[in-house]
């Protein structure tokens, strides 16, 4: 474990807690892409199946359980409890265009053609594009509430910090995983324009307005 990964995991945890809390407190999921949340729930459930087969550490197990539980709870709030506030009209990204390539790529490019490894690889590829429906929705509505942009900043930062973690581990432990690294770079790159807007606007108290 290293400082980059600890801060990355905490940033990730913060992001999903911010989102769950926002929906729960405002009793509304306006501006939130339910499709992205479904993809994230899928990412965690397919990646963390190894919860039942391998024990890495208490921290690892606890975090995996939290990520699965919070992502499913968020989907429940969006599609069940507060579904009257779900913005169908703006959450229109075709997620099958993300799922199909992730499945195909996982079957073609992986470390090991076993069930758990293919699922892990699918999860890594899917996570790199899972935020697209949310970013698409923000671009369609032309703006995002500041709490949503804090969520996106924390979520985008987590994988950026993981890239530093991978550099650290390659340098210090001589291990690396190209699939995770390439997907992580793609994932972080998707946030770049958002990061720019967040830093130049939201941090100056302005609303996040995307050029429509």
């Amino acid at each position: 474990m290293n400082i980059f990964r600890i801060i990355g995991d905490l940033s990730h945890l913060l992001a999903i807690i911010i989102l769950l809390r926002k929906i729960w407190k405002t009793r509304s999921c306006a501006g939130i892409s339910g499709k992205s949340q479904i993809l994230f729930a899928l990412v965690y459930t397919t990646r963390y199946l190894d919860l039942v087969t391998t024990y890495v550490s208490l921290y690892n197990t606890v975090m995996k359980i939290i990520f699965i539980a919070v992502s499913i709870a968020t989907c429940y709030l969006i599609y069940m409890k507060f579904k009257a506030t779900y913005d169908h009209n703006h959450d229109t990204f075709r997620i099958e265009f993300l799922l199909a390539p992730a499945v195909i790529l996982a079957l073609l490019i992986n470390h090991d053609f076993t069930f758990l490894e293919i699922l892990w690889t699918f999860s890594i590829y899917l996570e790199s594009v899972a935020i697209l429906p949310q970013l698409f929705m923000v671009s369609k509505t032309g703006e995002a509430e500041s709490i949503t942009s804090h969520y996106l900043f924390a979520l985008g930062s987590y994988r950026a910090l993981y890239i530093l973690n991978w550099i650290y581990r390659y340098h210090n432990e001589e291990i690396y995983d190209l699939i995770a690294i390439v997907a992580g770079i793609v994932q972080t790159a998707l946030y770049c324009d958002f990061f720019y807007l967040y830093i130049t606007k939201v941090l100056r108290g302005k609303k996040l307005q995307l050029p429509a």
Partner: peptide
């Protein structure tokens, strides 16, 4: 080795 990494990462 490459793929021992993710077994201990989230």
């Amino acid at each position: 080795g490459t793929n021992t990494l993710h077994k201990d990462e989230l």
